[in-house]
Nucleic acid binder design. Structure first.
Lengths: 350, 350
DNA sequence: GTGAAAGCGCTAACAT
DNA sequence: ATGTTAGCGCTTTCAC
């Protein structure tokens, strides 16, 4: 059967096109009209056409959440939260995968064609071209992550530096003196700022030995490979603790430690970042810095809705505070920090 | 600045609306016209409007992949594969979360409004209402998963029964005689058919002791909880092996075993299903049945493209064969199956 | 090769 | 409260 349009419904109900539209959309219309139109629409199996409606209304009722890697649970958490906020306002949420830096740029440009009414973007790579595209973009956008100072785009920020500081402080307080930071790719925003955080947190502390390493990706596999390299490096360096750039890399680190016979937390403490569900379920449980992914999702959604409401609003940057969730991969407080070096061949390879 | 439309470009280029459209879309047009239109469009920063174009063309260039739970890596794998296939044909892929059974139904109905040109759906719950909605739907759809016999919808099927049989056979061959099946919710399609597979594979084998248990969800957490209950149940039952409904539940099982002091694989073998990246990275590695998620994704994408090409094509059901990927969570072949019962307090709780 | 004009399906003035 | 009509931005006959 051919497409059923509003005109068909109008004809069947015996009223005008306008009345039909009004009746269906809850505008002014007599009860009788509403009733007849409703029935006609039901009988015909009428389904409004999204394109026609969007063209007329200049809105689609859809919002997009775009991330580089849906495989990371932290994005899944954000997504759930965003969806629940925007669904309450009648919006449908679609997820887009941005892929690499070019893909992100393409996506932002493409959305200007009007596929969606708004965008929440959590980019891994922030290039000048992307910043430019974001500022030029006509679709209301909120970025979860750091943008260059002065960029005229709403953002919600995790406090990466503060979060890493929390991790380092906890490790130092529980007796760690040599701390390795296993970062992800440093050309990404999280990579850069978490690295910055690690450097700030360990700067001016001659009592600490530190090292920086890189996983090739923010994944369990890459974290495992990087940690294994750390534990088997020559010349042998003894690490008391590892700060991992995220939980996935942290879990990879746990596995590598296990495989190298390094006992966590007795010989090595490990802290992840993001406090995802995975941290709760691995063994030992992964102590993790909570950067507030659900709160970030929630705030991003609210910011976007506000921006769509009023495009003239001044640009806002909302910060979410970090917190530390202790689990089994770090030792409980060892008392005073001056207790000194932890015992034995802590974290020594083999 | 106001929206730039095709009319603006036409005016600036000094040619008609029609010629402008043709020039931009690679239709017949003189080189000179193309050149002038191109430049005008560039200068004006023209971006075609998706809604208007869709309304006219009756196509959006978008395809949807809808799943209940993006958190499961198996869907992420499918997604990547689907995207790579459809992107090659010029389609953009959007991901939708269906949520529960009602949500799935709503989504299928909603897509008839024309948001997308096609849909790949991997439903957890298949209700009569959903089947009906799928058959009535005007948008070309491919379902990944089992539909009732005779449903006129293209499907791509994993061989759940065959896959579970592979797992059971492997366990039996390596000496297991008491096998627990930790299923997910049995009101779901995977839950039902993997259960069926387990029953078929163990039927008529009086030498085997079997048990069925249920995780409340297809997640690590739920698997952990379910396995823990299994290992600490009274009266105490000794299990040689666990078949988990998927890798997530399998990993939860590994954790529970570890926590209960059950050594894998010495005292207990564990097999997961889906063979996701997680199986490769946990300790011990999780032996897993590969149901061919990437191949399913690929086939679903091809089926959908074919269906969109020709709506009159007869309904097809494509099957993907399972295979077993051995890892550390099961013992290597114990030789002949008649070696008999495995030693000691295998898998005994506490 | 190009232009004029129709129309995709819908909503919102505006007039009644 | 209802009907008439214009028009959202685009593509595509159909004449020339």
């Amino acid at each position: 059967m051919a497409r059923v349009t509003l005109a068909d419904v109008a004809r069947r109900a015996g009223v005008s096109l306008a009345s039909t539209s009004r009746a269906l959309n809850g505008q002014v219309a007599s009860a009788a009209t509403v009733e007849r139109v409703r029935r006609a629409a039901d009988e015909l199996g009428y389904i409004p056409d999204a394109s026609a409606r969007s063209l007329r209304l200049r809105r689609t009722g859809q919002l997009a959440f775009a991330v580089a890697d849906i495989g990371n649970p932290v994005y899944v958490e954000m997504m759930r939260e965003i969806e629940s906020v925007v669904a309450a306002e009648g919006y449908r949420l679609v997820i887009s995968r941005t892929g690499d830096a070019d893909g992100t740029l393409d996506l932002v440009r493409d959305l200007n064609r009007g596929y969606v009414d708004g965008l929440i973007l959590s980019p891994l790579w922030v290039t000048p071209a992307l910043v430019h595209a974001l500022e030029e973009s006509t679709v209301p956008t909120v970025v979860i992550g750091r943008l260059p100072e002065g960029t005229r785009v709403d953002t919600v920020l995790a406090d990466s530096e503060g979060g890493v500081a929390l991790a380092v402080d906890h490790l130092v307080r529980t007796g760690a003196r040599s701390i390795a930071f296993i970062n992800g790719p440093v050309d990404t925003t999280p990579g850069r700022f978490r690295q910055l955080g690690f450097r700030e947190a360990t700067a001016g502390r001659p009592d600490l030995t530190t090292g920086e390493f890189h996983a090739e990706d923010f994944t369990i596999e890459a974290g495992y490979a990087a940690a294994k390299a750390v534990f088997t490096a020559e010349p042998t360096q003894t690490w008391d603790a590892v700060v991992a750039v995220n939980d996935l890399v942290g879990i990879g680190t746990l596995h590598a430690a296990h495989e190298c016979g390094v006992v966590v937390p007795d010989e090595l403490s490990v802290i992840g970042i993001d406090n995802t569900a995975l941290a709760d379920v691995c063994h030992p449980g992964l102590t993790s810095v909570d950067l507030g992914s659900t709160r970030r999702g929630q705030k991003a959604a609210r910011l976007l809705l506000a921006r769509m409401e009023d495009g003239e609003l001044p640009t806002r940057a909302v910060r979410v505070a970090p917190s530390l969730q202790e689990r089994g991969s770090t030792t409980a407080h060892a008392g005073a920090a001056d207790q000194g070096q932890r015992g034995g061949a802590a974290g020594r390879a083999r």
